[in-house]
């Protein structure tokens, strides 16, 4: 049984991907590779993570590119199933927000808002009521009947965030969502949402390279490095740790390069 205030729980969660690589050579070599399985390679994206997220918490995940942050988000939402022996639980409705995803480019703003809202379990009558608010929050009053394909990245981001906020998702998982949106006015609004999140009991999982946001809001930070969890703690603590891992990594690479050159 899970404690009542825990909304996400990961127990011994690992994720291994099997990828197939293109084999060069003649047709016999190719078919042999497919049959024997020698063209397959295993990649351990996330290794043995244990984590509990409380209701109303703002959890940030940091790590270099390819350290398994997005995979971890997918494992939390259950889109990816963990390897054998691991277990991932999520309680409540959630929405994953990531760059440029979540909308059908062929549909207009109005159609997308209704579709996404309904899929998230909001009644159409309620959407009718909130539609104006959603559009105003996203500042897209002039583009209600415009197809999303004409939208800039910033416009899409604003719309997705607005829908997520007004659809009352219990958990928002943001995968480098605000990257590239520097609009000050909108930032104020999103700041307000983050500030109110704890009060309204919204849980936010937040993957970002923006140390500023993390320092400002994160209750806890998780550091991932090559799929492993290197530390969980307060923002200042983990950011220092993160910077030092990057430094260590850089100097190690430099040494290796020098070593290679000497050889």
């Amino acid at each position: 049984m899970m404690k009542e205030d825990i909304v996400i729980k990961l127990e011994n969660v690992s994720k291994t991907f099997t990828i197939r690589e293109k084999v060069s050579g003649n047709i016999f070599q190719k078919s042999w590779a497919v049959l024997s399985g020698s063209n397959r390679r295993k990649i351990e994206a996330v290794k043995n993570i244990n984590l509990e997220v409380k209701k109303g918490e703002f959890l940030s995940i940091v790590g270099a590119n390819g350290s398994g942050k997005s995979t971890l988000i997918h494992l939390m939402t259950g889109v990816y199933r963990p390897d054998k022996g691991g277990k991932s639980t999520i309680i409540g409705s959630f929405i994953r927000l990531s760059l440029g995803l979540g909308f059908n480019a062929q549909l207009t703003t109005r159609e997308n808002v209704y579709l996404n809202g309904s899929v998230m379990g909001v009644k159409i009558s309620e959407l009718n009521k909130n539609f104006k608010k959603i559009i105003e929050f996203a500042e897209l009053q002039k583009f209600v009947n415009t197809k999303i394909k004409y939208f800039s990245r910033g416009m899409r981001t604003r719309l997705a965030f607005s829908v997520a906020v007004h659809a009352h998702a219990d958990i928002m998982l943001m995968d480098e969502f605000f990257g590239g949106v520097g609009d000050e006015r909108f930032k104020e609004k999103s700041d307000k949402v983050f500030n109110d999140a704890f009060v309204s009991g919204k849980t936010i999982i937040h993957v970002s390279h923006s140390m500023e946001t993390i320092k400002k809001y994160a209750d806890r930070v998780v550091l991932l490095h090559e799929g492993e969890c290197r530390g969980i703690g307060s923002a200042d603590e983990i950011i220092d740790l993160y910077r030092s891992t990057i430094k260590v990594e850089k100097s190690r690479r430099r040494e290796k390069k020098q070593y290679d050159q000497q050889q």
Binding site: H74, T77, G78, V79, I90, S93, F94, I95, R96, L97, S98, L101, G102, F103, N104, L115, N116, V119, M120, G121
Partner: peptide, 13 residues
Amino acid sequence: RYLLENINFNRLD
């Protein structure tokens, strides 16, 4: 995919 990946709802829908 753009819905299945981001939101939890009954997939059979």
